[in-house]
Nucleic acid binder design. Structure first.
Lengths: 211, 211
DNA sequence: TTAAAAATACTGGAAAACCAGTAGAAAAAA
DNA sequence: TTTTTTCTACTGGTTTTCCAGTATTTTTAA
């Protein structure tokens, strides 16, 4: 009788949310909540050992990033279904966690029906999105269409130093390289973001949440 | 026996959160949850009629702003204790809702103990903050200390054009003034934001939500 | 190990931003 | 209406960024 129940683990840094999900899921006899955690590390240890069917995973965790945790779980146990449950309504966040192997995404304002529907769906092997999320995925914003350029480690460093108001000279000194090198990085940043000066660069980088 | 129970109303747009709070509060026999709502309007109608002792109020509501709802409740029934329960960890939001008459503020990651402690405190007439909130209030961020500079209409115009990547020349043309005038505006913007180049300017203006 | 990507550095020149101080005209507030 | 603020504009510089192209070394991935 217990054997065919769906085991569910809840990971969320808010105990209120954990309690809420628990009480919503308790009403479905087929589900069995085998654990709940407020930190990524404790959750990972448990999940790796116990291999639940489904993990309800929040993206904001105090210790590690939910997106990274998702990837790590999928690496050791790809059969575990991960249903991301988050407040983030931004397209790129949704895409990121799907890229990391999540089987579904819902915002925290889901109804009980939708939550249960989502769990059933991912258990069956489907990818599930709540209605709101479906809309977000459907209509990509102008700014997001451009895509986020892939920056190298060095370029990211230079970018944040530029954003801090440092001059090419200062950045060069701080990173122990020639100012000419920093100029090259600057030019590459401008090229990658398709902008023509610092103002636009900072705006573009902010839009892409790189700052 | 029922008469001396503390009546509590929960207002939050996430049913998960409502369930979570409910299950946490159920454990305290002195509390009686008389209603829970996901919209400001329905909550207000009920609260005005039923006059609960305590309202647990979220700031993000679909229809009206939690801060405004707080003020409205306090206008018709100042004796009702309002405990704000929110995800916002920004100092100015906390201050705003306190200004609107709230009796306490806690982040949604509170523990059960703290939640109950908060309710008891506001019922007794105290103002209550969860630990994290106390810290936020205690140490105002650098950026907030500086405050948002008061910009003139023209300066705001110039600022957004700078952010769009326009050069001094282009801005001058667009606004039909001399480039020298725009330079002056630029200098004044730098002075008002206490920055020394465009990168910092855009960052500062973004922080102040002027862009 | 080999190919590709990234980080490094250079020349030389043009454009734009930044600094400091002044000051008249227009608009808004007292 | 008078005062204050804002917008305008100038002189004469200095610093910094921006552009275009090339090239070696180091690191990373196939």
């Amino acid at each position: 009788m217990w054997a065919d129940k769906i085991s569910v683990v809840i990971v969320d840094d808010h105990s209120i949310v954990i309690e809420g999900i628990k009480s919503l899921l308790l009403l479905d006899q087929r589900l069995n909540i085998t654990g709940h955690f407020t930190t990524g590390k404790t959750a990972y240890n448990f999940i790796e050992r116990e291999r639940p069917h489904v993990v309800l995973l929040d993206i904001n965790l105090p210790d590690i990033n939910g997106i990274d945790l998702c990837r790590e779980i999928k690496t050791v146990a790809p059969e575990i279904k991960i249903l991301a449950l988050s407040n983030h309504a931004e397209r790129n966040i949704i895409m990121q966690i799907l890229q990391s192997g999540a089987n579904g995404y819902m915002l925290k304002n889901v109804s009980q029906q939708e939550l249960l529907k989502g769990i059933s769906a991912v258990v069956k092997g489907d990818i599930y999105f709540s209605n709101e999320v479906r809309e977000i995925i459907a209509k990509p914003a102008k700014s997001e269409l451009k895509g986020v350029p892939r920056l190298t480690k060095r370029e990211k460093q230079v970018l944040v130093l530029i954003a801090e108001g440092k001059t090419t000279q200062e950045i060069a000194t701080q990173l122990n390289v020639s100012p000419l090198t920093i100029e090259t990085h600057r030019r590459n940043l401008h090229f990658k973001f398709q902008v023509k000066n610092v103002a636009e660069l900072i705006m573009a980088a902010t839009r892409c949440q790189l700052l």
